[in-house]
């Protein structure tokens, strides 16, 4: 591209005022900002959280993307209908579902096994987005640890138990967001 190309829009730089030329006002301005932050931190308002000593405060647990859970409906049954949409949407291919015929009349299929490999998962939340019945959700549990790889592969029972553990702190989003019950 040539310098005289008509597509180039030339912007005139603003001229420096007296303060900029004298340098001192700018210097004082910069110094004030720094000292303000320094004083803030020294009075204990640093944004860092010393994690193992203190727990971080999660601003909105409903939109945090932590460990998965499998929701239960009002009768305590697993909500999942084994439609495979989450497994299809998953970019990390970490969801493995074996569907079978449902014992209940209100749906055709249900998951015989529902396994999420938490080590492969990238916590993008696509499964949550894809699910038509709001069965799989991400909780705000961020401190997920384990001693072996096997331990980190969550099966249906474990995912349901996550629901039991978190259902009081984080009620299902679907009701408030107009989803299925």
């Amino acid at each position: 591209m040539q310098a005289n190309d008509p597509a180039i829009k030339w912007v005139e730089e603003p001229q420096l005022g007296l303060g900029g030329k004298m340098y001192l006002p700018m210097f004082v301005q910069g110094l004030t900002t720094t000292v303000k932050h320094l004083a803030n931190s020294l009075s204990g308002k640093a944004v860092t959280v010393s994690y193992p000593d203190e727990e971080p405060e999660i601003a909105n647990p409903l939109i945090y993307r932590g460990v998965h859970r499998l929701n239960k409906d009002a009768q305590g049954r697993v909500k999942c209908v084994a439609c495979f949409l989450c497994a299809t949407a998953c970019p990390a291919h970490c969801i493995d579902i074996v569907g079978t015929e449902s014992p209940w009349p209100d749906r055709e299929k249900y998951p015989q096994s529902f396994v999420i490999d938490e080590l492969r998962c990238i916590y993008c939340g696509m499964c949550e987005e894809a699910c038509p019945v709001d069965a799989v959700e991400l909780t705000s549990l961020y401190n997920l640890t384990g001693r072996s790889r096997e331990e980190m592969i969550f099966d249906k029972e474990k995912l349901l138990s996550v629901y039991d553990a978190t259902k009081d702190a984080e009620p299902m989003k679907s009701a408030s967001l107009g989803g299925t019950v």
Partner: peptide, 12 residues
């Protein structure tokens, strides 16, 4: 050879 010979099209 590509030296601009005219200022036409330049802003200002």
């Amino acid at each position: 050879p590509s030296r601009p010979t005219t200022d036409a099209g330049l802003p200002g």
